[in-house]
Simulated assay, not measured.
Amino acid sequence: MNIRICIDVNDMERAVAFYTEGLGLHCGRRFQSGFVELLGAGSPIDLLLQTEGSRPLPGQAATRSYQRHWTPVHLDFVVDDIDAAVSRLLLHGAVLEQPVTDRIWGRIAGLADPFGHGIDLLQFTGRGYDAIPSSQDSLPS
């Protein structure tokens, strides 16, 4: 099974610049329907041009908003140099919501893209997630 990540945006050129220049992804294909495929991550990311205020589903009252919004799903991008990545993304319109913080597994920063979507940057150090004690580590032998 493959996964494709779809991100609604209301300004395609700004979105392409944000994700290519800010994160180092590159354009795969551009479609006339307002759809750009980005490559360079573990899965393709599809930017979908959608008008602010449009309805995501027929008959639904909710409308698209590109103000900062919270959702239980977000994207984590693993980077080699978190400080440089944060700086690049801020230049392209990201909002820093959680400054770079050290964790047992590495470093994390929380941002919002220019379209209100939350993204985290991760920089693994040492053993990465393997440095996190698992529940099995605390079981008696």
Rank of each mutant, 00 (worst) to 15 (best):
M1V: 06
R55E: 09
L49I: 08
E21Y: 10
A94Q: 14
A94W: 14
I104K: 04
R29E: 15
N2V: 11
G28S: 11
Y19M: 11
G53A: 11
H117L: 05
R68K: 15
D113L: 02
Y129W: 14
G128W: 00
Q67S: 15
S141P: 01
I7F: 00
E13M: 12
A62M: 12
L23T: 09
G118E: 10
G34E: 04
L75H: 07
V100H: 09
D46V: 06
T20D: 03
V95L: 15
P133I: 04
E37N: 06
G42T: 10
A62H: 04
L23H: 13
G59S: 12
Q32P: 10
Y129C: 13
G93C: 01
A62D: 08
F35L: 12
A94C: 12
G34K: 03
W105E: 01
R103Q: 12
T51Q: 08
A109L: 06
A61P: 03
L121H: 06
D8P: 08
D11K: 00
G24I: 04
Y66T: 14
G40P: 09
L47H: 02
D120S: 06
L121Y: 01
L57Q: 07
G59N: 13
V36Y: 08
Q50C: 10
L91Y: 03
D130C: 00
V9L: 09
L39S: 01
E37D: 07
R29M: 14
Q60S: 14
Q32G: 05
T20W: 05
I104C: 05
H26W: 11
M12T: 03
I3C: 00
L111N: 12
L139A: 15
P140T: 07
C6K: 09
V78R: 03
G110Q: 03
V78T: 08
F115M: 11
E52N: 10
S141A: 01
A85D: 10
C27Y: 01
E21I: 02
D8L: 04
S87L: 14
V86L: 01
A112S: 11
G116Y: 05
S65H: 03
S141H: 01
L122E: 00
S138D: 12
D130W: 01
F35W: 04
S87Y: 13
H26G: 05
L139Y: 11
Y66F: 15
P72Q: 14
L23V: 10
P44H: 04
T71C: 05
A94R: 12
I7V: 08
Y66N: 14
P99K: 13
D130H: 02
D102Q: 06
A85I: 09
V95S: 14
I104W: 02
T101H: 04
T125S: 00
D120H: 08
N2P: 11
I3R: 00
I108F: 11
R4F: 06
A109D: 06
R14F: 01
D137T: 02
F124T: 02
G118R: 11
Y129S: 10
Y66A: 15
F77W: 06
A15F: 07
R68S: 11
T125N: 00
G118M: 08
S33V: 08
A131Y: 00
S87M: 12
A41T: 03
D80P: 03
R107M: 10
H74I: 03
D130E: 05
C6Q: 09
P99M: 08
A84I: 10
D113I: 04
R68F: 12
R127C: 02
L48K: 09
V95R: 13
R29A: 15
